[in-house]
Design a protein around this nucleic acid. Structure first.
Lengths: 221, 221
DNA sequence: CGACTTGTTGAGTGAACTCAAGGAGGGTGG
DNA sequence: CCACCCTCCTTGAGTTCACTCAACAAGTCG
């Protein structure tokens, strides 16, 4: 296809066809290869990106190179809210990614002009804030097992599911570990524990969730 | 004074006097004693609160009683964004607190009606989102010393300062520990370490920051 | 085919946690 | 005004569990 669309812009609620077309005109389709950096923290944010296809890891860095993955962006997500002169986060592609690039000021104008778009922006921010709060609760208080089960549960909810039980995990263990604030080795051992307990079953590029009801309900509401 | 005001609603940017008066009319002043609960997670959120005086701890609970303090709300802050039927967080007073109570739907209408208020709401959400991201980075990757210095630095920036160096800490050690995701004993020992290194000096209800420039700059931007 | 990345496993260490006790206010009631 | 209680903070001792370091297996890509 010659031109990437920017599907499911904000989940269920849609813009009017007319507004959608206008938004499409503002978007420049861009492709990124696996591992390629899309935005870098601290750089001038003259452009902002929305994900069309693929998965993007969004992260922040500490001075000494340690980094923490804030979230994994899916199709329909913006990498960050178009506020501030500079990017507040870094982001790079996990696997091949198609994205829509917007000129920041144009997108801002469009948001200003469209009542629906403004509402969607606010709702999106609130949604992300809620997720951040759950994440903080987990990072602060959760033991590794809880963190991983909660992550799998929330990731499952966000994914377009192939099946009820199978959860695709396109990102590396390292990325998941960096998201949950633990060492990769600890993550591996935690996966092993959950598998021993018959809570999950590891498969290629994902896990099958067994006993989904009780064990993966934490942090779900 | 008979009626509490809701000062500095969103920091520097102010509403027009007319809008401010209208907002004031929607607000019911309420007082809370030290330790008193203001809102509880999961309860119907027919009313929302803004802090007028005092400090409020905003937290989330896990099923087994563990809790994590998401943030400390200061005068001018709303406890949460007026979205959703139910409260997403719990909050209680640290010391005596004066608050403004709003009917949720009335406040929402007002936000909808006022262009300035809408903008302030978005800005406020973005600000909180940014703080959440910094907090996640710290919770995930920071060692206790970094976490504490970063907390003191960010708290200093938010406080109306008595002096350049003194930072008032009205909340308990336990609250700070629950905010940073560590045991109270670890926090005490971390305070001791920082004092030994001449980075801070403990005082009554606060600390004096020595050598503020270098040591407290992390997570400041 | 070889170099590199990624995931897993093992061993050992260390740091933060738990449990426990003691001291220092602060508030209340006699 | 004092005695008492209670909460909060601190300190100590011991343990646990996640981290680090290291080696190895398994893909993956040139």
């Amino acid at each position: 296809m010659a031109r990437d669309s920017f599907p499911d812009l904000f989940g269920k609620v849609a813009l009017s066809p007319r507004e959608l077309r206008k938004l499409q005109r503002l978007a420049t389709p861009v492709r990124f290869r696996s591992g390629q950096q899309i935005v870098a923290e601290g750089e001038i944010a003259s452009e902002v990106y929305g994900v069309s296809q693929g998965v993007v890891r969004v992260y922040k860095k500490l001075a000494d190179g340690r980094h923490h993955v804030l979230r994994f962006a899916l199709p329909g997500d913006f990498l960050e809210w178009p506020r501030g002169e500079r990017h507040g986060v870094s982001a790079d592609a996990i696997g091949a990614v198609s994205a829509s690039r917007f000129a920041r000021c144009e997108l801002l104008e469009f948001i200003q002009a469209s009542r629906a778009m403004k509402r969607l922006t606010i709702d999106g921010a609130a949604e992300e804030l809620k997720r951040s709060q759950d994440q903080m609760l987990l990072l602060g208080r959760g033991v590794p097992e809880e963190q991983l089960t909660a992550f799998l549960a929330s990731w499952r909810k966000r994914l377009p599911r192939r099946s009820d039980r199978f959860v695709s995990l396109p990102m590396s263990r390292r990325d998941i570990a960096a998201h949950l604030g633990m060492a990769p080795e600890t993550l591996t051992r935690t996966f092993a524990k959950l598998e021993q307990r018959r809570i999950i079953r590891a498969e290629a590029d994902g896990v099958e969730l067994l006993d989904t009801g009780r064990n993966l309900s934490s942090a779900e509401k």
